[in-house]
């Protein structure tokens, strides 16, 4: 049975407060994911290791980690496909740490909430569902796949420099609702992102495009929002 060596980032604020590395050897047969490897370590080798996970199918975004120098979802990363040994597992870079592989996502989700991530109507909510053509829906195919794993947020130099910058994920979601034909939020959402710690803090560094495990494109979404801001001011077009 082949074996994989996991080199895992350990940090326990209550015990020593130092960051250190610990190596574990995990046997595997055919298709072991990094998340399953972590389960094995937790069950058989060291019960004190902490990590976030939930769906195990790349839908929930809980298990985004920095594995072998790349942003990956632990649940969809197959150990067989990782070329370098040992397999280095770290929490998301530049995020406040809680314990071991768990980082503090409070800011990240507060910023997501801040852009009002829901469809709003100008006056009264209609009794029936609002219709949308398949073409218009097709425009949203990309951003709705975002699972809020935080990889792009963690990779963005603008976020590293400015705590108040909303970050690629929140702005991708702002795009998702601004580009939606059913949404009539207009100024209600606009003030949250159309400023210098919103879209204009993005310098098209494109780290987010490289980092995203779902291969989405926050940069393009942010550029669309910037363009829409100009179109709105010059031509008075909202969509």
């Amino acid at each position: 049975m082949p074996e994989a060596t996991f080199r895992i980032h350990r940090y326990d604020p209550e015990r020593d407060g130092d960051r250190r590395w610990q190596e574990f050897t995990v046997p595997y047969e055919n298709s072991l994911t990094v998340l399953e490897g972590l389960f094995y370590i937790q069950e058989n080798l060291d019960g004190s290791i902490s990590f976030r996970y939930c769906c195990r199918a790349a839908v929930c975004g809980s298990c985004a980690m920095y594995i072998n120098g790349r942003y990956r979802l632990a649940c969809q990363t197959n150990v067989k496909n990782l070329e370098d040994a040992p397999i280095t597992v770290e929490p998301l870079p530049r995020m406040p740490l809680v314990k071991d592989l768990v980082c503090d996502m409070t800011d990240f989700f507060a910023k997501y909430e801040y852009i009002k991530p829901y469809i709003m109507h100008e006056s009264q909510y209609p009794e029936k569902e609002t219709l949308q053509s398949p073409e218009d829906r097709h425009k949203l195919d990309n951003p709705v796949d975002c699972i809020l794993c935080g990889s792009c947020y963690s990779s963005c130099p603008s976020v590293w420099g400015e705590d108040n910058y909303l970050g690629p994920a929140a702005l991708l979601w702002a795009y998702r609702f601004e580009a939606d034909t059913r949404d009539e939020a207009r100024k209600a959402r606009l003030s949250s992102f159309d400023n210098e710690r919103g879209v204009y803090r993005c310098h098209t560094i494109t780290n987010c495009v490289e980092a995203c495990p779902k291969e989405l494109n926050p940069t393009e979404a942010i550029q669309w929002l910037k363009g829409a801001a100009v179109r709105r001011r010059i031509f008075g077009r909202w969509k």
Binding site: Y11, G17, Y66, L92, P93, R94, P96, L97, C103
Partner: peptide, 8 residues
């Protein structure tokens, strides 16, 4: 605090 800057 305790950001994982090494990987950053």
């Amino acid at each position: 605090r305790h950001e994982n800057v090494g990987a950053g």
